[in-house]
């Protein structure tokens, strides 16, 4: 189990995150929800030390990740950024970066074989020696996901992985995440805006409002009242073919 305890973060005097605590079980996908500027991206970047929180701890068992070294942290948590810089690197070399926390000097055959396997799993085998600046948005996001998978994390952090993707790629992307989380018995925190998509692929939901945890729980926390309180909008929460969806307006 991963226990996030009392995380606070400030930009100067401005408090962005206020005493955030919650637990995540292995095999769980947590949808991190809330308005723009609520502190969702800041929260996930505090968990893997991209930003340094003012207070708090992130426990993997009894170990506090915030007290570990950089490489040790990278062996526990992988991260896919909201915006990726696109460079003239091949798909394979980009995915291979996920092995960086493990590579001592040279790349081992095991590293290469693992990258090969994951590239095939995300369906990019035929593109593996292509430069990533030649790929579409959906393909690029799969490359970043593959890089995060080969890092062999216990916790996967995804910051709006489906933004700028068409519906097909959104579903494919989240289905891959869900499959990997279940298969490897790891956890994922996914910052996401589409509530119906979150309901379909996540099994826990963390509502952040003004830097605080507003609600945390299973699909039962997604109600018309809570959506109104968090986003300030009207919505209808309905079920179609046994699947819960949210219609805005």
């Amino acid at each position: 189990m991963i226990r996030i305890k009392h995380i606070s973060f400030s930009y100067g005097q401005r408090e962005i995150l206020k005493d955030i605590s919650f637990d995540v079980q292995p095999g769980e996908c947590v949808g991190v929800l809330g308005n723009n500027g609520a502190g969702k991206s800041t929260l996930i970047t505090c968990l893997n030390k991209i930003r340094t929180p003012k207070t708090g701890a992130v426990y993997f068992g009894n170990q506090d990740i915030l007290k570990m070294g950089r490489l040790e942290t990278a062996r526990h948590i992988s991260y896919v950024a909201q915006k990726n810089e696109i460079s003239q690197m091949t798909v394979f070399d980009t995915v291979l970066l996920g092995r960086k926390p493990y590579i001592k000097w040279a790349v081992s055959q095991e590293d290469i074989d693992l990258c090969d396997k994951v590239i095939r799993q995300v369906g990019l085998a035929e593109y593996k020696l292509r430069y990533i600046n030649e790929l579409s948005g959906g393909e690029l996001q799969k490359v970043m996901l593959a890089r995060a998978f080969v890092q062999e994390p216990k916790l996967l952090l995804l910051d709006e992985p489906t933004s700028n993707l068409d519906p097909k790629n959104q579903y494919e992307m989240l289905a891959m995440v869900q499959h990997m989380v279940r298969q490897r018995h790891i956890s994922a925190l996914i910052v996401i805006h589409d509530l119906s998509l979150a309901l379909r692929y996540c099994n826990k939901f963390l509502f952040i409002r003004e830097g605080e945890v507003f609600r945390y729980g299973d699909a039962s926390v997604i109600t018309k009242e809570i959506i109104s309180a968090v986003y300030g909008i009207d919505s209808t929460v309905a079920e179609i073919d046994g699947r819960k969806i949210v219609v805005i307006g």
């Binding site: 991209i50 990278a74 950024a81 915006k83 970066l97 952090l157």
Partner: peptide
């Protein structure tokens, strides 16, 4: 891959 991604890779 950018500063944030690099930090996340250690």
């Amino acid at each position: 891959s950018g500063g944030h991604t690099a930090k996340s890779l250690g």
